[in-house]
Amino acid sequence: MTRVETGAPPAAAPASAAALLRERARWSLFDLLFWAAALAAFFVFPLRLPLLTEIAILGLFALSIDLLLGYAGIVSLGHAAFFGAGAYAAGILAQHGWGEPISGLAAAGLVAAALGFATSFLVLRGSDLTRLMVTLGVAMMVLEAANKAAWLTGGADGLNGVVMDPVFGVFEFDLFGHTAYWYALAVLFLCFLAIRRIVNAPFGLVLRGIQGNALRMSAVGAPVNRHLVAVYTLAAGFAGIAGGLLAQTTQFVSLDVLNFQRSAEGLLVLIIGGSGVLYGGLVGAVAFKLMQEWLSNITTQYWQFWLGAALVLLVLFARGGLLGLARRFLRRRPARSERGGAA
């Protein structure tokens, strides 16, 4: 394979892996638009910040699942275990007087990553079905452990008395949720950059290879298991940060951070948006929450029915989620708009 130092022209196929990665890592119009919209949302919807914060957190959670599912092909039904571990880590720290948010968030990520590392060896074994069961089982065990350890977690009552210090010692968490939104958005952006870097590194390429055919990857000489352990740990860490964000911005943690429903929702959001494209989780989170909010305002009791119907339609007619749909739409008439902004 020849090494090509200069980037290939945009339209032509990249000539080497390095060029391919560079091509992928390039910022497009879509990137700019997306983050500009996220910033603008603060000014356009100043009274909806708690919802926007929730979207950012859900988006980060879905993004961490994307790292697993979209890139490494690991299907998990128990990712909430890490989300919850992070939430409890951040919450318990703050409850015991360590209210500094950023170090608390780092601790949340580390605790979740440690749990992810410890359980990753179980997940390595077996096929998809086994993984589903193992991840589900681990999440149930963590949930029950948190329920039993009421002296630490508050059990079914939830964790009370979480008091946060101001961010950077300046920005207090206010009732309007100003600080919470900026904080969550900044953390989401940084995590996004990190994950983008990870998947656009050779490491990410190996993951894709494993997703395609693990056996062949090991034949090529790639250490499949080591990569899987690493990505599982990373994904757990990012989920933990999302959980920590939730604990810090709501200043409350209850057992439902560990629920099966939380795992399922993350997966759902990712599938709505489209997996394996980074923005899938974020777009999915926006779409899911807005749809939920809109429907449950119209019909408080039966919104789940309509949400379900929308999901079925989406999965049937929009393979690859909303982003897949958008990409197909743009590709259908590429002549006029030279290069569409699909991510």
């Binding site: 708690p50 919802l51 929730e54 939730l246 709501t250 409350f252 209850s254 439902d256």
Partner: peptide, 11 residues
């Protein structure tokens, strides 16, 4: 779900 309750109350 507790975090949703809190968010809705806040909003």
């Amino acid at each position: 779900t507790a975090d949703v309750t809190k968010r809705i109350a806040q909003e």
